[in-house]
Nucleic acid binder design. Structure first.
Length: 287
DNA sequence: CGGGTACCGCCTGTCCGTTT
DNA sequence: AAACGGACAGGCGGTACCCG
């Protein structure tokens, strides 16, 4: 899956009540749409901080890591990063007769940023939509599959701010969430260093087995996979920041053996780091 | 709910050869 | 020289199952 792609999907699915119009995940720079975007949009913020400005009302929204934010169609807006850290943004445009109602129904409209409980899972779903679109056929069945994946994503994004019934359960969950949040923080801070899951588990006070179980329950991805994704995304980032960087230097910066880096890179993205660098360079030159 | 054990698969590092 | 691939060994991660 190419993390820098923003694709527009075929427009021949008007019969479906809900389907993706465009999808992508990339490092976001300054972007202005004076007349807005033709469909509803949802943004997911993975890293960095940015500012979203509604050009009609002038209202400004700060978008931070772990946040989701929806915005209606045909309304002028602009957004740009405000942190030094790359602003890694996932994006999906949604079309279909039910899009407005669905977004209102799950609490994403009116536009207010919030922290979805299963952010990582939602992030993965965006990847799946991208992957489904690029890897599979664009016939009726293909579009239905996309629509189903989108529906699942929206259910996961649903705002759930209802009060839990049991106080003790809430306390337990809060302790657990704190531990997992701390683990994610540790991974985010130290992903370029050798990091053992057993150390992570110990650091947040769980056995390895239980830690993995909770992590997967919460984020729908194993701690190890999460760590690996971070490393590979950092690799892409290094390539875009410096087109001349050597593959071996990227590997060193990620704390990995060059051969191993090339291998997992190819397994994940379907091409070697060298090829990816060329593609990114070509993409940059076309702009 | 949380921890322990066992087992299997594969991740990771290493070495070396080949290609560009 | 840099990038990439193949093979292999050791260790770690993931998971199922069990127990308190």
């Amino acid at each position: 899956m190419l993390p820098f792609s923003l694709i527009e999907l075929p427009r021949d699915a008007e019969t479906l009540p809900l389907y993706p119009y465009s999808v992508g995940r990339h490092i976001q720079f300054h972007h202005v749409r004076p007349t807005g975007f033709p469909v509803h949009q949802i943004f997911l913020i993975r890293t960095g901080t940015g500012l979203f400005r509604d050009l009609e009302s002038g209202s400004e929204t700060i978008l931070e890591p772990g946040m989701a934010f929806a915005f209606p169609p045909d309304r002028g807006h602009e957004y740009y990063p405000t942190s030094h850290e790359p602003w890694h943004v996932g994006f999906i445009g949604i079309e279909g007769s039910q899009s407005q109602g669905m977004l209102e129904g799950i609490g994403l409209l009116p536009s207010l940023p919030y922290h979805p409980a299963r952010f990582e899972q939602c992030w993965e779903e965006i990847g799946k939509i991208w992957h489904t679109q690029t890897a599979s056929r664009q016939d009726e069945q293909g579009m239905e599959d996309l629509s189903i994946t989108l529906y699942r994503l929206l259910l996961m994004l649903r705002r759930s701010e209802s009060i839990h019934s049991s106080g003790s359960r809430l306390e337990l969950e809060s302790v657990r969430n704190e531990a997992l949040a701390k683990a994610v923080e540790l991974i985010n801070e130290h992903y370029t260093e050798p990091l053992l899951i057993s150390n992570l588990a110990a650091a947040v006070g769980y056995s390895v087995q239980h830690f993995q179980r909770l992590f997967v329950q919460e984020y729908a991805v194993t701690p190890h996979k999460y760590l690996q994704n971070l490393r590979l995304e950092r690799a892409i980032q290094l390539m875009t920041e410096n087109a001349d960087i050597l593959v071996q230097d990227i590997a060193i910066q990620l704390g990995m053996e060059t051969n191993y880096f090339i291998r997992i890179f190819r397994n994940t993205y379907g091409c070697t780091p060298g090829v990816m660098k060329l593609r990114l360079l070509e993409g940059e030159q076309k702009r």
